[in-house]
């Protein structure tokens, strides 16, 4: 059983979004980290890079796989979690604590297109 947190928004590509005012804190779900296995590297963008909703902004890497990360909302990166550079295993340890980027949203209404916890739970079929 994967952990799912109530009150967050979820994308079909297994990112979670926590809304803090105008900023979306983005990470990957517990389900996604389990699917990847031991994560060896988190490829993150630079601060000030801009992304459209659905655009890939980085990737998770394991020994034998690479999985793109997709930005659930449009906006500009205001912070990246630099801790992950030397400790990618933090995503395995607690995927909801190991946020990846913070994005200043350009269109908060895009959040409405994302799933809530119940819908995401149904999607992953657990």
């Amino acid at each position: 059983m994967s952990k799912i947190i109530e009150g967050l928004k979820y994308s079909e590509s297994h990112e979670w979004v926590k809304v803090e005012g105008n900023v979306a804190v983005i990470g990957v779900t517990d389900f996604a980290q389990k699917e990847m296995g031991d994560i060896t590297y988190v490829d993150v963008p630079d601060v000030d890079d801009s992304f459209e909703a659905g655009e890939d902004f980085g990737a998770l890497e394991s020994v034998k796989a690479s999985s793109d990360l997709y930005c659930p909302v449009s906006g500009k990166v205001v912070e990246v979690n630099e801790e992950l550079e030397d400790a990618p295993e933090k995503v395995n340890e607690d995927a909801f604590a190991a946020w990846i980027i913070k994005v200043e949203m350009s269109d908060a209404s895009e959040l409405d297109a994302l799933m809530d916890a119940a819908a995401y739970k149904a999607m992953i079929g657990e």
């Binding site: 890497e61 394991s62 020994v63 690479s66």
Partner: peptide, 12 residues
């Protein structure tokens, strides 16, 4: 560092 390579990243 094989996640860079063609057999994993394919067209990317």
């Amino acid at each position: 560092l094989q996640a860079r390579e063609q057999h994993i990243k394919r067209e990317k």
